[in-house]
Amino acid sequence: MYSDGRVEKLMSHRDGELLWEDDRKRQFVRSENPIMPVLRRTDFLSGKGHSQSVGEGNPDSIRQLPSGTRVGFTVVRARYSGERSIRNWDCKHLGKRQEKVLGVMRELDSFACERFVIQRKTWQKNFRESRQFSYSRDLGLVVEMQRKTRKKSSGWKLVSIVPPDKASYKRLSKKVRKLRAAR
């Protein structure tokens, strides 16, 4: 559960991919590599969505490279409707730190990523969005995110993890109601 009121359920974890579902039953397949954008998104009733795969570059290299090294890669987004687009990302590992998350001291990796488009004529980079986030390897989750686009800034924090045996409707609805009321 996240501070912005989102709630997601882990449906499966296999072959390095995590399948998450939110309360609107939209499914998101995410990589174990936190700098990779969502690999697949599918809306429940409409079936609309997209898949994303690496075009050029190697985002996994960020694990071996020293902190501060820029890792550039492109992601090919293919909408289920057939449209395709290319997204450029630049990411770097900012370092490690110890911080209390959900009451436990954990090691967090900080990352900064920027998405941009390249102008065809001038080859200049045009900013689209930036994400600065912290990832907990032991939880396998991004625990804090700050996102900026050309129009707005937003952010969220991980606020709760509910194990499956405790995820009753009563418990979940109470927590979600509280989070959404505080928005």
């Binding site: 009121g5 309360d23 609107r24 039953k25 429940f44 409707y169 979940l172 609805s173 979600v176 959404r180």
Partner: peptide, 27 residues
């Protein structure tokens, strides 16, 4: 798919022609 404007909860309801309703909210 319905969105409660007071609670912000999303529900999915199947309206069976026989008058039965099956609803899912928060799984």
């Amino acid at each position: 798919e319905s969105h409660n404007l007071n609670t912000s909860f999303t529900s999915f309801t199947y309206y069976h022609p026989n008058g039965q309703a099956i609803q899912e909210r928060l799984w």
